[in-house]
Amino acid sequence: MFSLAQTIGVSGMAKRELVPFMIAFVIAEMFYKLGSFALECLEFLATWYLLSYAFDGLFRRGRGRG
């Protein structure tokens, strides 16, 4: 996380990750009820990673057309 903030800056990181983070947070809050903080945290991080990957792919594809 620190390396990413140093590379693209805090504002750039917020622009890239805020939407996937918020969606992953809502999904985790609504659906991940395992009774174990560690497992729920891992599921949240995996969801955030997958959403970030998907948004990055959509962003690149959309930017390539213009």
Rank of each mutant, 00 (worst) to 15 (best):
M1V: 11
M1L: 05
F2A: 13
S3I: 04
S3V: 06
S3T: 09
S3W: 10
S3F: 10
L4M: 13
L4C: 09
L4Q: 12
A5Q: 09
A5M: 12
Q6Y: 05
Q6V: 09
Q6I: 09
Q6K: 14
T7Y: 08
T7H: 12
I8R: 04
G9Y: 03
G9Q: 08
V10P: 01
V10E: 10
V10Q: 04
S11I: 13
G12I: 03
G12C: 03
G12A: 03
G12T: 03
M13A: 13
M13I: 08
M13Q: 04
A14Y: 06
A14C: 09
A14L: 15
K15W: 10
K15P: 01
K15T: 09
K15F: 11
R16F: 06
E17Y: 14
E17V: 06
E17C: 09
L18K: 00
L18M: 14
L18E: 08
L18V: 15
V19A: 12
V19C: 00
V19D: 00
P20V: 02
F21D: 02
F21L: 15
M22E: 07
M22F: 14
I23S: 02
I23E: 02
I23R: 00
A24Q: 01
A24I: 02
A24Y: 06
F25Q: 04
F25A: 13
V26H: 02
V26C: 06
I27A: 06
A28V: 01
A28P: 02
E29M: 12
E29P: 00
M30D: 01
M30N: 05
M30S: 07
M30Y: 05
F31K: 02
F31Q: 01
F31L: 14
Y32T: 04
Y32K: 00
Y32R: 03
K33C: 02
K33S: 04
K33F: 05
K33R: 06
L34P: 01
L34S: 15
L34E: 08
L34Y: 02
G35C: 02
G35M: 01
S36W: 13
S36E: 07
S36I: 03
S36P: 00
F37N: 10
F37M: 09
L39N: 08
L39Q: 11
L39M: 11
E40F: 01
C41W: 11
C41E: 12
C41I: 04
C41M: 14
L42Q: 10
L42H: 08
L42V: 15
L42K: 06
E43H: 09
A46G: 09
A46D: 03
T47C: 14
T47S: 07
T47R: 02
W48E: 05
W48I: 00
W48D: 04
Y49I: 12
Y49M: 14
L50M: 13
L50Q: 05
L51G: 00
S52M: 01
A54D: 03
A54T: 11
F55Y: 13
F55A: 11
D56H: 12
D56C: 07
D56T: 14
G57C: 10
G57H: 09
L58S: 04
F59G: 10
F59E: 13
F59S: 14
F59I: 07
R60F: 09
R60M: 11
R60S: 10
R61W: 15
R61A: 12
R61P: 00
R61Y: 14
G62E: 07
G62L: 06
R63M: 09
G64C: 05
G64D: 13
R65T: 15
G66K: 07
G66S: 07
G66A: 08
G66H: 08
